[in-house]
Design a binder for these strands. Structure first.
Lengths: 197, 197, 197, 197
DNA sequence: TCGTAAGCGAGACGGTACGTCGAGTCTTGCT
DNA sequence: AGCAAGACTCGACGTACCGTCTCGCTTACGA
């Protein structure tokens, strides 16, 4: 906690928290409007009413700035109903709603696509990205404790199977995500594709 | 086919096929080296030994150029062994190998990420993207004919469940794809996550 | 005389003579308005309706640009009346008039002051500066041929003595130059300060 | 005189004389090193180990600061030998030596050049500039009292004729000043350019 | 066999954004 | 109050590409 303290005893004028927030807000605004690649630091500065130097003093480039802004966007909201299928359906439905009502749908693909070529960006994006998956994994852990799923199931992989179709829609079908698809999708992942013997 | 004919009966010097190929090759080279967002038309022209106008005469911008170059990269290679699981495993393993040995791993995330903000790009990317999934869907169709899977299964969704984990790895785990993960992954998708009663 | 040929066989689009002139004109305008040190390349580009790169393609920095613009301003206009004093008075009067009616009074001190710290500027300024003195020296040479002045007089130094007071006014008295001062000034320099025996 | 008193009776901590001197010294240092136009207040503050505000509290901008620093540099040192020519030669020789061994040669042209466009700077530079000429004019006054020069000679103009060549060298010949040129120069100015009848 | 029409490499064009620097001002906590 | 430190907004720097536009020069076809 308390990320406010800095190692050095902080001499000179302290950085303006107000400017910090204005920059992040402007970044989210613009991301939603024009997307990652068309986002310019100059534009963010203008929108935030801030000098460019004030941005570069805090973030090395637009990548980390966008990652921090991204971190403010909603993620999975944990749901604990006692049933894995129900938990997953609630979480995914909530996520899709958040997706369609915030800059998420504009930011996430951009960031994910960019990290492939930008080691620096990848490094700062990693923990944020993992942190957002945590509620999902917790649902699987609870299911394991309840005996709903096999003891030696790879939970990471299971989570990937569940959210995978959303990723595919997002990146390859260009399409708007629809909360209605969640039910069948989760059912299919839980029961398996192959016909039950 | 035959993209060579143009509506107008083509008087004057014909476009150089040599230049065309050089441009696409240079594009793939540079995509692998620097990624989509750092790729510049100027750089492609220089690498291909071509004037910028020669590029803009054929492609409106870097988006469509990259999409066309992307279309040259390998996709799923159909495998028909008589068993859905085996088909899928072979296709995915082959794909992952292609992925790690060509510019694919650099190009695909970039393009997929960019399309979210670029309607034009999205439009040209769509058919290419769908075409590449076709072998996968065919395998499912064969399995349905063989009775391996339920008659009323949504094949699109099933395909998404199978390749989903790969997409997740690619976009969110920054990770190199490993052909070894394919076996358990396909098995899990086919049998389902929930413990069999 | 044919300064248009360039050593290299000049491939690509040729540089726009129109832009060249617009830039020099804008430079002179702005020099007269704001002076050398407040002159910005950005401002020149805007005034000339030209991109910054078009300026930097021709001149390495604002120094050489200003020097070239300076070279367009009027200098001494030769006068040959058969009398050294009369020649000098006419030339200096004409020069002072030019001085007060063009950007000269703004440009010359700035450039002269700047060259002290800028070797590059000094180098390009040198020939221009010397060229402008030439008519003055020619008047002294004619006077020597006529026997008006001693055979072994250092003409350079004599020229300096004549124009020196103008330089002093210009740099240290901040003052507007007045054509009326020319007569007594030239007389004093020609006859000497010390009372004639 | 006594610039220490301020109108208000000065409550609070008094201004540090130490900082004042450090700033002026740093200014002279940097002027000699990089010249007027490349001199930055930021640089002066850093060199002097002082906050920028401490400089702006005393001087409105770099112009007046430099003028004050300039005032610390040596000027003509009066010489009274009973002969005008000798007085002038001694003074000018001394001045040239000072010129070549201090920041003078860097500061003087810059300031003189800048004042043309900067009314504020011109205003503060004026008295300093005039004050420095005073010893020169006194020599002429003594010569007039001794009858060496005509009663109705314009002393200002005479002084300009004598120092003019130095100014010309300084501003237009880019050149280092050489004490050897003083003798002939003064002689020429005193005796006149025109051959004696 | 030639003229005409388009494509070609090269590179300049007017722009926009980059990331940096300094100007002059404004907090901090300390003296 | 002044001090050093350093963040603030602003604006210019010089560079890199954008997508467009001449240049002088190939090609190829159709008259």
């Amino acid at each position: 906690m308390a990320s406010r303290e800095r190692g050095t005893s902080s001499t000179g004028r302290p950085r303006s928290e107000e400017a910090h927030q204005a920059i992040l807000a402007a970044t989210l605004d613009l991301l939603a409007e024009v997307g990652y690649s068309a986002l310019t630091v100059e534009g963010v500065a203008a929108r935030a009413g801030v000098g460019k130097a004030t941005i570069y003093r805090r973030w090395a480039s637009k990548g980390p700035l966008v990652v921090e802004a991204f971190g403010l966007l909603p993620s999975f909201e944990d749901a604990d109903t006692g049933d894995l299928g129900e938990d997953l359906k609630r979480m995914l439905r909530g996520y899709i709603l958040a997706f369609n009502s915030t800059a998420l749908s504009a930011v996430l693909p951009s960031l994910a696509g960019e990290r492939a070529h930008d080691a620096e960006l990848s490094k700062v994006f990693e923990p944020v990205s993992l942190g957002r998956r945590a509620p999902l994994l917790r649902a699987f852990e609870r299911a394991r404790e309840r005996g709903e799923i096999s003891e030696d199931l790879d939970l990471e992989m299971a989570a990937d199977v569940v959210v995978g179709p959303i990723a595919v829609c997002l990146f390859f079908k260009g399409g708007r995500l629809n909360a209605k698809m969640v039910g069948p999708m989760v059912d299919l992942a839980l029961q398996g594709i192959r016909k039950e013997a």
